[in-house]
Structure formats: structure tokens, C-alpha cells
Nucleic acid binder design. Structure first.
Lengths: 330, 330
DNA sequence: ATACATCATGTTTACGTAAACATGACCGCG
DNA sequence: CGCGGTCATGTTTACGTAAACATGATGTAT
């Protein structure tokens, strides 16, 4: 900056003013400074800027894996929103499963140059880490039940699972089987609970849920079990990937979808409409979730005090070809 | 830090020594300082640290979208590697399609607090932006043909596409049809070129490629076209998502896979083994690509001079159930 | 015993920026 | 014509850290 100032024959303060777009700079001077900046290949030093201002114009996103569709879409949306707001995004991956991983993540967290943090993490991991969350840094959480303690944004999982289950009941199925996500995942538990509640409300018997791990493979395995039972006519999979595996199992077992068995998923991942048959599923608006995360986080950063509570983004059913009324059996 | 120093009754310099793990500190003093740090809730200020050291311990990842499987996996791997190396990752999204988007991305790029940059971007966008890439910042590029100018890491697309095509020829198919990715994508062009070259080498006729947009939907549409042609017995899709759409089109058209038509994909996305039937595909080792990106980038950061050239990560065929020898037609 | 390492610790300084304050030029109004 | 006000610009300072240098205490070899 000193070089630029010398080149333009002004003080460094004037250069600073030009860089920050202050109005009280003469047009001639401004142009001279801009030219000098180009000539000197000047790049503002964000470290010094942050040091002076106490702000980083950056938010951290903590996640334990990027490899699920939902996390990725949420991250994408958060990134887009934060960029619009002039914030950059720093990724803070957590090595799951190990106490070390969580501990080192928290350590790194405390040292990161961020104004706020978005946590996209299962509740169970959070429980271990939350105790030592750095104080004084605003936090917004996705996919968790920590709503009483923190600001939480999430899809309305309960209503989504209810819609899926009710849709199958409305079609005339006597009951709905459920292939659930892993018990450790809070969203999986919520979807399963809502499925159960919906069946109970309708006064229909509740078949035992089959617990998968979100993967297509686990869906396939449970799908084989379900396909072998003639009384199964409707399946609610806790996500689309498992639904894909279920479809494969049903096809291989000679059960036609939707004629013999109806299948419904959750997420509406990009290619759910290219499944065979195209999958009826619950659409999650990840973009909106990400956007709200940033809105909430910016509020927290500006107000500088906690504001716990959950914000739910509605989910809606997308009707495709994998669900139908049960065919008559006489 | 001054507070901590006062609490521990030492100078701030000693606190700094403890924080940085220098050995020349008395054990008693060290413990006193650590206790004071805990008491004061001290968090090192990374901005000041960067200002002093001239390093940020951070790398930037430029991408134009997070919503393709490959980009996501690459980002995941880069993040994992950089975390191991003690670097954090800053996301720098580019709004595609608009000159503004590219320009503003470059501007932000120049201001970012990063020691190096990984660019995961189509070549065409890069062409427009590369001119103004900030000088003096090491850059590694994925998915691009800029190898002569920059350091490039990528999957060996050419060999992967060759393996896929050759596998189908080896099974006895007289030729292989290709559903390509968008022309704008360099990886799509490379796969298509390699498919064509393999067919020409084998002396088989080269059917006109059908150009999709990576989506399952576009695969479905081209799949319908191909399904209607009786002479089509083998299809090479440029990615798994399009292969999924092709499978759907074939099923709906009554063409059995693999008995009537063989289908092969590219990527080996997580649920390719749950397609119906499980998809034979070309496995890309995104983890290795991401790891190599970091290795190369750290080399560049340390040596401080450019080192252009491409590093290719081998791809390998994963045999599943969607390919078979053509059935005899008499 | 003297001189000279070795080691823990303290003091000074600079990194690049922008707020706060200072300066001086020019304007309009009574 | 002089006064306060506005405006462009310059000067000083502080942000939190760590390198460089300084100090003083202890150990050790001759």
C-alpha cells in the first residue's frame, strides 16, 4: 500500500479511502490511485484488514461429511447466500467417530478466522462437541434437536414424513412399511417417529421398521426382505438412495412398482425423476434451508446475542410414478 | 494475549512461545500460562498471526457449482487432505454464465486470504478468467486442458473412456453408442474423443454421439431414441446419472438390460451399484485427485515457482450387471 | 576462578490497514 | 472582509502477534 501511495503521490490513507470506496476523494486523485494500484499489482491484505476491523467477513461451516446429498446441497446454498452477503465460507470438516476428531475440530474452530459458524451435523456428535463450542461466536445448526439451546434451521421432517405416509394411506394401502435411516441420525429418528404417529392416528397397525444406513445397498437388502412378503404393498424409505435400492430389490423379485408395491422416498435428489419408475418423494428445499441459515447467522452476528429456537422449512410431496392404489386381490 | 500474560505474570512473548509450542519455556511457566489461557478464554487471533507471518494456512477452492457429484467428491478430498496438512479451506463460488460472475470471482480471489488456490472448473470458464488470475498465488487446476500453462491434476479420462468402450467391444458388440456430456465440459469432450478413437482403432463404424447435459433426464430422452433403434446393443454414457436415465428409457421401451442392450457409465457414483441392474461403470478415484491437488499445491507454495504439467489419476472399470455379450439374433 | 556457553524470559519493533484527529484550501454568508 | 463550514488530504496511532535482540541467571570447561 505504501508503494501505491508513493506511485500515486498521495498518502497511504488516501489509498485506503479509494480501496474502501469512500466518497470524499477527488476524482483525479482516485484515478491516479487506481492506476497506481494496477501498476503495482496491489492486493489488499485481508489479514491486516481483519486485524484492524475485528471482523473477518467469513463464516465457517462445520460438517462431518460432504458425501451426503443433503449436506452438499445445504452447503451449496449457504455458500451462495454468504457470497451474496459479502462473506466467504471456510470449511471445517470433522473426522467423525473419534473423540480426537471432534476435539481437534473444536480446537481448529476456536482458532478460525470466522464471524459465525453453521453446523451441519448429527445431534449425537454435536452433543459431545457442544460443551466446548467457543463462546462469543454466533452459531446456527442444521439437522439437530438442539433448538432449545441454539438457533436451528431445518426442513420440517415431521410434516414431510407425515405427508408421505398419509399419501400412501390415502391411496388405500392398509398400512405402510418403513425403511429408516440410521438411528444415530436425528432426521432419521424424526422421520420414523412421524411415520409411526401417522399410522397410529389412522388406527392402522404399525409394522416393525427396518433400519438402514442411508445407502442404496442397505435399501436393497431391506427391499429383498420386504419383497418376499406378499402383504407389503407400500414402503416409505427415509431417503431416495435407499428407495433406489428398494426399487432394484422389488424388480429383481418380480414385484411391479407401483402395481404390486408402492414406494415413496425422501429428499427429491436430482435424479429421483430418472429412477425406474420415477420416484414419488418428499421434496426438501435445501436452498431455502441454506438461505435461512445465513439470514439467521447474520442476525446473530449483528445483534451479538443468542436467539435460540427452530425455524422449519416446509417440505412438499412430489408425485411421480412409484405410488398407486393397491391393486385388487380377489 | 496481554490479559493472559498478566494473569500468568509473564510477558506476552512468553505466552506466544507457549502457544506456538516452543521448547525453551520452563515447565512451571508453561503450566501457569496454559492455566491462564483457560481462565481468560484466550483465542489466538489468526488475523494478527497471518499479518505477522505472511501466511494464512488456508487454501481457496474455486468452483462454479457444488451440485455435480464429481466436484463434490473432489472438494471433499481436497478438504480432507488440506486439513491434514494444517490448512483450512475457503470456498470461492463462481456465478457461471455471466461475465460479471467471473469478474467478481476474480476480484474476490485477489482479496482472499489464501496461500494457494485449487480451481475445479470447466475449461471454457477458466479461459475467460485465467488472464486475470492473481499472480504470485500458486494454482492447481482440476478438469481442464490448461496443462501447458498450469499445474493440472485430473482423472485419466481418456484411458477411462477407452476401457469402457473397449470392454463393450470385447464383449462382442459390433459398435458402441455414446451419450456425451455437454460440449462445454472439457471432460465430456475428452471422453467422447476417446470413445471415437477407440472405435476407429477397432475399425468399427462410429455412430453419431448424442449430446446430453449430465442429467438423468437428458439421459432418459436420448435413451428413448436409442431404445427405438433395434441395432443399438451397447451404450456408453458419459456419466452415471445419464446412464440411470438411459436404463429407465430402456426398461420403459421393453429393452432388457443387459440381455438386449448393454449400458456402461462413468464416475461410479455411490449408488451406481443400486441401479437396476447394477451399473458397470468407470470408477474415478476422486479421493486421489483431491489428495494430489494438495500435494502439488503444497509443493508450489513451498518452492514458490510455477511447475506446469498434468498429473493423471488412473481410472478403472467396475464390472457389474449392466453389460453382457450381445444375444444371438438369428 | 574466570570466561564463556546455555537457557528462560523480557523488551522492542514491525507486519498492513483504517479510525481518529489534524491541516489547509476553498466556499458562502453576514 | 472575516468567520464558520465543507471538503480533500496528510499524520498519528493501535489492532495482536512473533521475530529479533537484550538481559540476567545458571552451568561448565579451562
Amino acid at each position: 500500500m505504501a508503494d501505491v501511495a508513493a506511485l500515486a503521490k498521495v498518502s497511504s490513507q488516501t489509498v485506503s479511502r479509494v480501496v474502501n470506496g469512500r466518497t470524499n476523494v477527488d476524482d483525479d486523485t482516485r484515478e491516479r490511485v487506481l492506476a497506481a494500484m494496477g501498476e503495482a499489482g496491489y492486493r489488499p491484505n485481508s489479514a491486516a484488514r481483519s486485524l484492524k476491523s475485528g471482523q473477518f467477513r467469513s463464516i465457517g461451516v462445520v460438517l462431518y461429511t460432504l458425501s451426503t446429498f443433503g449436506n452438499m446441497r445445504t452447503l451449496d446454498a449457504v455458500t451462495a447466500s454468504s457470497t451474496l452477503a459479502g462473506y466467504s465460507v471456510t470449511l471445517l470438516p470433522v473426522a467423525l467417530d473419534t473423540e480426537d476428531g471432534v476435539a481437534s475440530a473444536v480446537t481448529r474452530l476456536a482458532e478460525q478466522a470466522v464471524d459465525g459458524i453453521v453446523i451441519i451435523m448429527e445431534a449425537q456428535v454435536l452433543d459431545r462437541a457442544s460443551i466446548t463450542l467457543p463462546t462469543g461466536v454466533p452459531v446456527v445448526i442444521v439437522d439437530s434437536d438442539a433448538g432449545s439451546q441454539f438457533t436451528v434451521v431445518d426442513t420440517d421432517q415431521v410434516d414431510g414424513a407425515r405427508q408421505a405416509t398419509q399419501h400412501l394411506l390415502d391411496l388405500g394401502h392398509t398400512t405402510v412399511w418403513h425403511v429408516a435411516g440410521p438411528d444415530a441420525a436425528f432426521s432419521a429418528r424424526r422421520r420414523a417417529a412421524s411415520w409411526r404417529a401417522t399410522l397410529e392416528e389412522a388406527g392402522t397397525p404399525v409394522p416393525p421398521p427396518l433400519v438402514g444406513d442411508w445407502s442404496g445397498k442397505s435399501g436393497y437388502q431391506h427391499g429383498l426382505t420386504l419383497a418376499a412378503r406378499k402383504d407389503v404393498t407400500a414402503i416409505f424409505a427415509a431417503n431416495d438412495q435407499m428407495a433406489l435400492g428398494i426399487l432394484r430389490a422389488l424388480h429383481e423379485s418380480g414385484r411391479a412398482v407401483p402395481q404390486s408395491v408402492s414406494v415413496i422416498g425422501f429428499d427429491d435428489m436430482p435424479d429421483a425423476d430418472s429412477f425406474y419408475p420415477p420416484l414419488t418423494t418428499v421434496h426438501q428445499d435445501f436452498g431455502e434451508v441454506g438461505r435461512l441459515c445465513m439470514v439467521k447467522l447474520l442476525e446473530l452476528i449483528e445483534s451479538n446475542r443468542p436467539h435460540p429456537g427452530a425455524t422449519l422449512v416446509p417440505a412438499h410431496l412430489v408425485l411421480r410414478s412409484s405410488t398407486a392404489s393397491p391393486s385388487r386381490r380377489d
